[in-house]
Design a binder for these strands. Structure first.
Lengths: 213, 213
DNA sequence: CCACTAATGTACGAACTAGTGAGTTATTTG
DNA sequence: CAAATAACTCACTAGTTCGTACATTAGTGG
């Protein structure tokens, strides 16, 4: 008498376990550096199952990438742009991005790794196309509102603003090791977190207000 | 009668050729992805020479990293901080960083790759320690000058400002592929270059002037 | 409860990959 | 010019790594 919960065999659980381990391993060692045998050893199943469920190393990597992006998809939905004035809205978005990058280290690592491979795998995935659209839409609305109220004077488009915010938040996590080695400061350490979080908000607000002109 | 220029055997030339090819290959494929045989095939010499001159794959990689950093060392020396007012000085530094990252793609790739490996190789290299000091010194002087004149009101330290500038310039190049795949814009394309170059200058100036407060 | 299918384990192989042993030739030096 | 040494070639290997053939067992529908 077996219930679905305590089966010895469970395709979904096995698949999910492989994917979890794969994501961590690829993030840790890169695509070429990760070992299929190592991933298998870190699961409670065998290498055979990786090929049974995913087909091969590359497909497993793509699945891990998709999972990483999926976990992340809807950050921007939490910004209530309609009930916040534009200045606070863009500051909030910047700081949410900061929090998000701070909390998803494996995602950051996988994106960095995928760039080493010139995004060749992302392009093979249909799931990952047009994943950027929602943020751009949100930023556009904030920018429009800000120009309407006169708070924003700088004419920058949504993609540029998104890049400005992302670059700060991404770099801090992705480059923490070389930056730490060269400048002797771990930008991801707790004692720097709040200051840098405030900084990214100030940065984008100051830029959009146009004090630099 | 052989002159030093047309020798059949030339240790320096052989070593340099290996290093050039290695730098490009490691930047292209990562540490684990690069193949010693492939590097050898792309030179006019043999794999045996790689081991003869460098000892092994890892030492070759470290040598390539050191070369990349060396090519780059003295960007900041061209900023004439004493003859520029603080606002123009920091803007100039930001834009020089932009130009520099734009021109040294292999360097960017190698730094990104080195971060995947948590800077473990950089730490093995004595050459690369304290390479960051000069920029920090320069930025400190600009910040001090800016606070003295009253141009800068935001209290940020040199490392933070350096991170702000670097992140923007680095991200644009390093993440061009995933960013392009997700947002349909190649930030490294010529038609975006000048706008983004101006933007990084405006950004840091606006932030330091403190319009966001 | 039996047959069928989905899920899983074992063992193995072909190709690749970093690294080397041993000998050879060019260049320099006494 | 002879001896010594630095630069170089060639062929090889030990170990790894992705992938698979084949056997087996658990769960399920009839």
């Amino acid at each position: 008498m077996s219930t679905p919960g305590d089966r010895q065999r469970d395709a979904d659980r096995t698949r999910a376990e492989i994917l979890d381990v794969a994501m961590a391993e690829f993030a840790r060692s890169g695509y070429a550096g990760a070992r299929v045998d190592e991933i298998a050893d870190l699961t409670s199943t065998t290498k055979r199952m990786i090929y049974y469920y995913f087909g091969g190393k590359e497909q497993l990597y793509i699945a891990a990438l998709e999972k990483a992006y999926a976990e992340v998809r809807a950050v921007e939905k939490t910004v209530d742009v309609d009930h916040l004035d534009p200045v606070e809205a863009i500051r909030t978005l910047a700081q949410l991005t900061f929090d998000h990058h701070d909390a998803h280290r494996d995602f950051i690592a996988l994106v960095a790794i995928e760039n080493v491979h010139r995004a060749e795998h992302i392009r093979k995935s249909e799931v990952l196309a047009n994943l950027g659209a929602p943020v751009l839409d949100l930023i556009s609305r904030i920018l429009d509102a800000g120009h309407a109220t006169g708070d924003f004077t700088t004419g920058a488009d949504a993609i540029d603003v998104h890049m400005m915010i992302s670059s700060f938040c991404f770099f801090r996590v992705a480059n923490q090791h070389t930056f730490g080695a060269l400048f002797g400061r771990d930008m991801t350490a707790p004692e720097h977190r709040e200051r840098l979080r405030t900084m990214v908000g100030e940065m984008v607000v100051a830029y959009l207000k146009g004090a630099g002109v």
